[in-house]
Computed example of a mutant assay.
Amino acid sequence: MSGPAPAGTAGELLADLPASPAVWCSGLRKRYRRRTAVDGVSFTVGRGEVVGLLGPNGAGKTSVIKMLLDLVRPDAGEVLLLGRPATDPQARARVGYLPELFRYQPWLTAAEVLRLHVRLSGAAVPEAERRESLGLVGLADRAGDRVGGFSKGMQQRLGLAVALAARPELVVLDEPTSALDPVGRADVRDLLLSLRARGVAVLLNSHLIGEVERVCDRVVILDKGRVVAAGTLAELLGQRELRLRLDNVGPQAEARLAAAGQLDHSGDTFTVALPADPDPATVPDLVADLVGLGVRVHAVEPGRVSLEERLLSILREEHA
């Protein structure tokens, strides 16, 4: 008969288990009278992962976000945030949220708004960290100004600071760049990348597909309340293409082009299909080899179907 397990074994086993996803939802459904807003939606957001939620107006994106955050109760389905039920206040305390529509008390200063929301979250965040949150969104020099005098873009920046102030492990952003100019959108993009580098998970709902394509690890596409496609950008967008305009292409050079990927040839234009995520050295090595074989290289144009084109293609297939 074996003796008792050594003390601490269970804790060590638990410590070795992978962290639960930042978001896990399964079979979410929601009806409003006769209209089905969300119909069987399931997906995950891993720790330190940026996931984009895409789809046309009325696809159910905001309804899904509200169910994830327990702002709307689903008719069916389950949600876990950071390994806890979404109804658990301890889970929601570690989530930062920027809603699509929000208003702050116009008589408060930016610093006072931040202090209020940190108190409501129950987190103990020193004043220096709160100032740092304002600095991250470009409002460090406006901390003492009343919110009523802020432009729409400045209020959007303040909303981002509020979402980040209580040291969240998960940040949910619903159209975070809708009121921002190009500089503001670039700032938000850099901010999202820094959150990912710190291990913070982000769920991003945005109509600015170019921004999603730049920052997201994975994308979930909704249409009519259902998930119609999901995956990494490489999985959704497929192969990359390399178009080259060349002269003096002999048999050896053509064989070298074909060795890089499926080859199409029209006039002086050669198109090579590359893997979705090619080795960074693939293109420069190919060009160097072609030059070594006496080929004159006039142009090299890497390309791939854009996320916008792929999204429209998926939605057209669904509607057809």
Rank of each mutant, 00 (worst) to 15 (best):
P4H: 15
A7E: 15
A7L: 15
A7D: 15
G8E: 10
S20K: 13
V23L: 13
R35N: 12
G40L: 04
V41S: 06
G48H: 06
G58V: 04
K66H: 10
M67I: 07
M67L: 08
M67S: 08
L69E: 12
D70G: 02
E78V: 06
L82D: 05
R92M: 07
G96K: 02
G96T: 05
L98Y: 02
Y104P: 12
P106A: 06
L108V: 10
L114N: 01
V118H: 04
P126T: 11
E127M: 09
E127R: 11
A128T: 14
S133H: 05
A140W: 04
V147C: 13
R157M: 13
L158H: 02
G159D: 00
R167I: 12
R167T: 09
E169L: 04
L170S: 04
S178C: 06
D181L: 04
P182Y: 10
R189P: 03
L193S: 05
R198D: 02
G199D: 10
A201T: 02
I209C: 14
E213N: 12
V215I: 12
C216D: 01
C216Y: 10
R218M: 03
L222D: 10
L222I: 06
K224M: 14
G231V: 00
T232R: 08
Q239Y: 13
R243Y: 12
L246M: 07
R256F: 05
A259L: 08
A260T: 01
D268V: 04
T269F: 09
V272T: 12
A273V: 09
P275V: 00
P280T: 03
P284C: 02
V287T: 11
L290V: 01
G294N: 03
R304W: 04
V305D: 15
E308M: 00
E308D: 08
R310M: 14
I314V: 06
L315R: 07
